[in-house]
Design a binder for these strands. Structure first.
Lengths: 218, 218
DNA sequence: CAACGACATGTAGAAGTTGACACGTGACGG
DNA sequence: CCGTCACGTGTCAACTTCTACATGTCGTTG
């Protein structure tokens, strides 16, 4: 049912057509919150309209239909937002891959982590640039209104991306410490596999006594 | 196909039965990486065996079948780990809900955020306690081996949970600033809705000029 | 030894998601 | 005015996941 509420949420922000909503979906929710394809969006909009939670408020060129949320839709969305389930579903193929890295040998795992950290850094740079340019088109990214949809999402990225990158770098130091300790003959040299560019290297951190360390505290 | 690789990953760590793998799944992958139900696990194990990626190495009491990964399975997993897709799928009902908070009025949104921050803090406390008790049963959580599965996952939690909590607190200050500025008559009082306990309140932070601020830098 | 709860594995149908394809429209350049 | 490309909406079959149900076992307790 999450897709339904994702769409109701977007409609609560502003009415729009399937095509337009698909684009907004990709811009805002897709990365961290929820993924959906355009055909799913169209189908769900039809269902939303059938259930009276949204309605067609305009029909334009090329069969374009603009949907708006109804009062019933707002009430339903509100109820969903205020009643979180005990165990929400999380599916993240990124993270899954990272968690399973132990199945590779250390230098391969190190390479994947370095690539990941670099990619996260690129995302972060892009987001930072977007946020700092502070006066964007409201339809193109973050809104100036601090309560608005894009603002919360941007803040989320600005908090989570560094943490994600730092974790990857921490994991790299764990690997380096490990290979340096009990396999000192092939530890910390350039890896090469899958095009790692080494741009995510971390200085320091040569301790490491076995337990989890060097993590941000509570 | 992610479930398939999640299971191959767990099997690469250690052989196990469907029941046991389901438990390991819930303990390790479920929270951040991938969610699956027990019946899905059993079905996928059958398919894995049919495809030669896993095999039954032992049949015990109560029809219990212990599966182990095969060489083909290891190769397949390795290939998957080393070849990430351009756009992995992310679905997180938690985050979706948080992103759509703008559809509530400020005090309700504030309450949900406070609840969320408190819940994250509880998770973090639990994880910290687990990690600090440093000598757990290897089958019960984090392994002492720094490269091992649970270790990377625990480190992930220790990095991401504080960021997540901090984001929620940041969002709360954004709401407080907003309501304090242009609706000063009903801004920062106790909310009550859905049982917020206020334990995640943040002192300070009364600035706020419209753009995204007070976020960890690059 | 009967009852009971945790263990352990599964099936069936419905709902959600994916990937590929299909088809008409409007704008714009040549 | 013709081709082409982005726009815009949709269908369909295959696959994945969810909810609910079904079935039997082992160990413990009364």
């Amino acid at each position: 049912m999450s897709l339904r509420y994702a769409l109701l949420g977007l409609l609560a922000d502003e009415a729009g057509s399937g095509y337009e909503l698909t684009k907004r979906f990709e811009r805002s929710l897709d990365r961290y919150a929820w993924h959906a394809k355009h055909n799913q969006v169209y189908q769900e909009l039809n269902r939303l309209a059938a259930d009276g939670l949204a309605e067609v408020v305009e029909e334009g060129a090329r069969g374009r239909k603009t949907y708006a949320i109804t009062e019933a839709g707002r009430a339903d969305l509100r109820h969903w937002l205020l009643n979180p389930p005990r165990t929400p579903v999380v599916r993240n193929e990124f993270v899954l891959r990272l968690f399973l890295l132990f199945a590779l040998d250390p230098k391969e795992a190190r390479s994947v982590l370095a690539d990941y950290a670099a990619a996260v850094q690129r995302d972060l740079d892009a987001l930072t640039a977007l946020v700092e340019s502070a006066n964007f088109d409201p339809h193109d990214g973050v809104l100036p209104d601090p309560l608005a949809f894009g603002h919360l999402a941007a803040g989320f990225g600005l908090h989570m991306l560094p943490a994600s990158r730092d974790w990857a770098q921490w994991a790299i130091t764990q690997i380096d410490n490990q290979t340096g300790e009990d396999a000192g003959h092939e530890g910390a040299r350039e890896t090469g596999t899958s095009g790692g560019d080494g741009s995510a290297e971390d200085g320091g951190a040569t301790k490491g006594s076995g337990a989890v360390e060097e993590t941000p505290g509570s």
